[in-house]
Design a protein around this nucleic acid. Sequence first.
DNA 1: TTGAAAGCGGTACCAA
DNA 2: TTGGTACCGCTTTCAA
Lengths: 337, 337
Amino acid sequence: MTTIHEVAAAAGVSISTVSYALSGKRPVSEKTRRRIEDAAQTLGYQPDAGARMLAGRRTHIFALTEPLRADTHAPTHMAFVLATAVAARRRGYDILLLTDEQTSDGMNRVAASNLVDAILVLDVAPDDERVDIARSVRTPTIFIGLPDDQRDLTCVDLDFEAAGHLAIDRLADAGHAAAHLLGQTEVSYRKSNFPRRLLRGVEERAADRDVVLTWTATGAAATDPALVRRSAEAALDDGIRAFVVHAVDDVHDVLLEVLDERGLALGVDASVISAAASFDTSVLAAPIDTIPLVPQQSCELAVDIAVRHLDETNVPPEIHLIAPEYHGAGSVRPPRD
Amino acid sequence: MTTIHEVAAAAGVSISTVSYALSGKRPVSEKTRRRIEDAAQTLGYQPDAGARMLAGRRTHIFALTEPLRADTHAPTHMAFVLATAVAARRRGYDILLLTDEQTSDGMNRVAASNLVDAILVLDVAPDDERVDIARSVRTPTIFIGLPDDQRDLTCVDLDFEAAGHLAIDRLADAGHAAAHLLGQTEVSYRKSNFPRRLLRGVEERAADRDVVLTWTATGAAATDPALVRRSAEAALDDGIRAFVVHAVDDVHDVLLEVLDERGLALGVDASVISAAASFDTSVLAAPIDTIPLVPQQSCELAVDIAVRHLDETNVPPEIHLIAPEYHGAGSVRPPRD
DNA sequence: TTGAAAGCGGTACCAA
DNA sequence: TTGGTACCGCTTTCAA
């Protein structure tokens, strides 16, 4: 194991100079720095993590708590975990996993033992137990998602309400007087917060713009293709030609299938917008207008905020809502004048 | 932040006694131990992670490398990650995530900086780049899965070949002279190792027992329901009434659907065995005989071995194959005498 | 621009 | 059964 002493000896300097040269926290003459870097390079020097934590009061580790519920959509969840890990590494941080039963105890433990510099919270529930813990620990905690009670919390999330507004606006602009929302699973409307927020946004704007709105959740816990089909067909039977889909890929597939069966051309006879989908919508049978939920965006922002909490002192708690973006693909009728 | 000194003061003992009392590495009189534990409890003492690493030469962290490929089956993958995390925590270890691009660099980094006590390797490829790194680092590394070249490696995995043997044996015992294997995705036969191993086991034993074997992969990258249906129907048309399924849940569903359509009763007219499925087969439409792949089993064993490598010196590398178990559910014709 | 040295908060050896 | 203390390897202040 190469230590800083060996690097110092090899470069003919003191260990403090090595430390400063490598961290850049103190100016070091160009040529000694080069000598030190060369020595570190050839010796394969990597500072000891424990020593660095102890002396530097920085662990360079973030905890990521992810309580895996039975109804968790695995691909979406993985996308968020991955995006967080990538964003963290880019800033020089590793991710320590805190799973299920460990959530509360785990958060307290890693905070009390100074194992991590910050905690990132995934899969946030409306009445999340981690909210209280976040308030009680000194470790900066960033929620990726919004709990109901956001007092004193730092959160990052897509602005789902604005996404709902945006979707309805586009459909109304296209002249639709009625729209149907194919929503998330029933259980998610109770266990999560974002489906309700999108729904609220859609409802609000539909009321504002005199769009008659109907909606259905897509199955009890798992998505139910038959149910999706039935509700899509019922909407079509009612003369509705505008759809907002806030659901996983399968649901999109079913809707497109039904439209196809009825000979309704996307962007001509019928309009479809995929709202807050976190998967790659290009895998669908047809191009669809989307208001995507980009895990990389949320997670990167969360990591940035975490880092800021460490670098600056007294960063006030804040709710960061990410503005939705509309990506047109021709699945919505052109606006009529 | 509570330190060991405060606990010692509160209990009226020296810090070394506190350390020993809490670690149990030296006998401490019953009543002083109680006093110390009380003090630690009320003060909410949690040893500083960095200090513990530095002084104890043990980080109590395992790295988990998981290179997420595009064809990774998210639910299965999550099951393994979760099982690993749970098993590790039970032994007092946390899991540090090493994702994708970071795999090689990441392993070297965490090993060189003594950030982790051991490395667990998930999603092992036949020609995995992590094999060489495992050989070069001092950090004990356990593969959950088998690469082609296993020299000097410690690996844990289900004995897929034995699972293949077992499946064919049961079908042959039931009097089937022909069987069809519905396999994994095509890409997995190239990118992974276990599909081939199961296939080999099935082929070997089929040859031994004079069972005519046919098989198909289920789709190019993603599972293709239509393809599954076609190959199941073709097999039935050929008079085959015995199936081994080594695939995700959807494939099982399609097969059961086809059998149902043809009025073939499971366990009477036709036999089906699900081999090495890592999902809960009780969600299927009908009960099916299984030879399950239990993530908890593999991951717990891997963690146990990692711990053993830390507690004992000079544990030799070894391949640990987990014997498959047969769980009957009546989906295979009773053996004929 | 560089070096010496005082910690950081534990662990574990050596004494008592 | 307990206490004193020398590290563990690095960061950072204080001096030069």
